[in-house]
């Protein structure tokens, strides 16, 4: 597994060789888009903010939206700040956020082809997002409780328990608790 270098959380400039390729079945079903064309060496920027490349049936952007083609996540967040009601949280899968931030398929999955591609280890996430201890410190004040510091121990703070890339994220704590987290 290739591990990308340590970088800031958003707007990371990482060299990528493919974009948007993930759960082929899921995406084909939802968008009718064939991702195999993006599996080669094409530049990542070719689909930055270019929603209609994949979402051909109907635009996913409102009619009056400013042209998004070529936009990065940082540019999206100029209006859609995560701290405001215009936050994009929950509106698109996290693989989209990653892609818009320049973090494409190969950044996490290496150069495996779609058939052999497997789930990256937690360490891959941590290479950019920091250790579990660092994440716990960053979310110490989240209510009703710190989602990254579970009394059930480190196994309960694996990223992929909650943060899904190619399907909606899920609040794993909520399988037993009333904790209503607004999670990315």
């Amino acid at each position: 597994m290739r591990i990308i270098g340590k970088a800031s959380l958003v707007g990371v400039a990482v060299s990528v060789t493919a974009m948007f390729v993930a759960s082929e079945a899921l995406h084909s079903q939802e968008t009718g888009f064939d991702h195999s064309s993006l599996m080669g060496d094409g530049p990542a920027s070719s689909v930055l903010g270019d929603c209609v490349t994949c979402h051909t049936d109907a635009s996913v952007l409102p009619d009056a939206h400013v042209p998004a083609t070529g936009m990065s996540l940082t540019e999206c967040r100029a209006c859609h700040s995560p701290e405001t009601t215009l936050s994009l949280r929950g509106t698109m899968p996290l693989d989209h956020s990653h892609a818009l931030a320049g973090v494409g398929c190969a950044s996490c999955h290496g150069n495996d082809d779609a058939a052999t591609m497997s789930e990256p280890a937690t360490q891959v996430c941590q290479a950019c997002h920091g250790s579990l201890d660092e994440l716990a410190a960053a979310t110490a004040d989240v209510m009703p409780t710190n989602p990254h510091s579970s009394p059930h121990g480190a196994p309960y703070t694996e990223c992929s328990l909650c943060h899904m890339q190619h399907e909606p994220s899920q609040n794993f704590c909520a399988s037993c608790h009333d904790f209503e987290f607004d999670l990315p």
């Binding site: 059930h152 121990g153 196994p155 309960y156 694996e158 992929s160 328990l161 794993f172 037993c176």
Partner: peptide
């Protein structure tokens, strides 16, 4: 399950 520990860990 996705996590080890069963009921014991909780």
């Amino acid at each position: 399950m996705q996590v080890p520990g069963g009921n014991s860990i909780i």
